Simulated scan of single mutants.
Amino acid sequence: MKVLIAIDSFKGSISSVEGSEAISLGIKDIYPEAEIVTLPLADGGEGTVEALVQATGGKLVKKVVLGPLKEKVEAMYGILGDGKTAVIEVAEACGLPLVPSNQRNPFLTTTYGVGELISDAIEKGCREFVIGLGGSATNDAGVGMLQALGFRFLNLHDEEVGLGAESLLSIRKIDLSHVHAKLKECSFKVACDVNNPLYGPDGAAFIFGPQKGATPDMVKQLDKGLEHFAEIVLDELGTDIHNIEGAGAAGGLGAAFSGFLHADLQSGIELVLKIIEMEKNMQGVDFVVTGEGKLDGQTSMGKAPLGVAHLAQKYEIPVVALAGGVTEETAALNELGITSYFSIMNAPMTLEEAMDSKVTYNNLRSTTNQLFRLLQAVRTGVKK
């Protein structure tokens, strides 16, 4: 028997690597001789670096950068097994968890550290980049990231503006003469699963600003800053960064990557599946086990398990999905490639207990054990 394990992390509980190990042990309990292929999964958000590094035999790199509050933080990114591709989660350098709840103010936070990570990877020989957007504490349209890469944004007095969204309204000119020389050799693929424009009612400030600490009045000011910046970019560079699908992602980082770095914004899960060669690894597989912390209506809108199921369906491979929580909407997944799904919860418990990594690990192993025990009984019966 050959089984492919491809699960996302159970966020806040267990990584995709640890979860895959637990499932693998559950299978081996029943089928010791089983051939198991493990491909830790992610959808471009949290866990993408770890998943891609693990899948390609790459390495993790730590770098001290300027965090969202303009204080030094240690961030991590990955270099894939080919030695030339860097994978970066922007949240490592400007993520919301890096900002205490009582200090959340998207006027002040900066994406500068993201640019420092890119620059460090360039110096290490990387020329291809995979970027995971999401989870940012910022609303600076990616200006901080661009500043770290040598782009200069000047005010009326030809002075460089400061960091953070509060500086957007001061920008009058863009100076490209100091941009990192090797940046033109680089290509960027950006995992982006939202299609919001840069500004307006559906833009970065109105849709994502409140969760980053913005009050209603702040949202309006932030939106004005984004609109002003887009107008300057259009006048100075002839580039429309407002109407790009996904421009508003991560506080406008989508606009910066696409408009300034010529990035290709695409579905996170599709990008990840291509990099880890998921389709190639499905050849000859008898069963696929996928899953994530919670299976719900969102799963049917492009999240990791569904991406796996779509490929498996192409080859008529049964797919079992495991999750901590399963909602009523999950039934729709049976029509989208997931053969059956199961909650790994086996007793009443508090959310805190359920999120404990040891509990999740043991529940994944025991649930898998029981599923494959049933499978063994069915297959034995068929043979008889």
Rank of each mutant, 00 (worst) to 15 (best):
A263D: 07
K182S: 13
V233M: 02
L261H: 02
V179R: 00
F260H: 06
G225S: 10
D223S: 05
I232K: 01
A250S: 11
I232L: 07
Q211D: 10
I171L: 03
V219Y: 00
I207V: 15
G246T: 05
A181N: 14
L222P: 00
I232Q: 02
P201E: 15
L237R: 12
R172C: 11
P210M: 03
E227N: 14
L176M: 15
V179N: 02
F229K: 01
K173Y: 14
P210S: 13
R172K: 15
Q221L: 09
L237W: 02
H242F: 14
K212D: 07
D217R: 09
C192V: 11
K224W: 03
D193F: 03
K182A: 11
A247G: 14
E185N: 07
G225I: 00
E227W: 01
P210C: 09
A181S: 15
V219E: 02
V219T: 07
V190W: 00
G200R: 13
V190F: 03
G259L: 03
D175C: 03
A205N: 06
G248V: 15
S258I: 10
T239I: 13
F188T: 13
D235C: 10
G248R: 13
E236R: 10
G238D: 13
I171K: 00
G213E: 03
A249Q: 05
H180D: 07
G248P: 01
A230F: 06
L176F: 10
G259I: 08
V179K: 02
K212E: 02
D193K: 03
K220H: 07
G251C: 06
H180I: 04
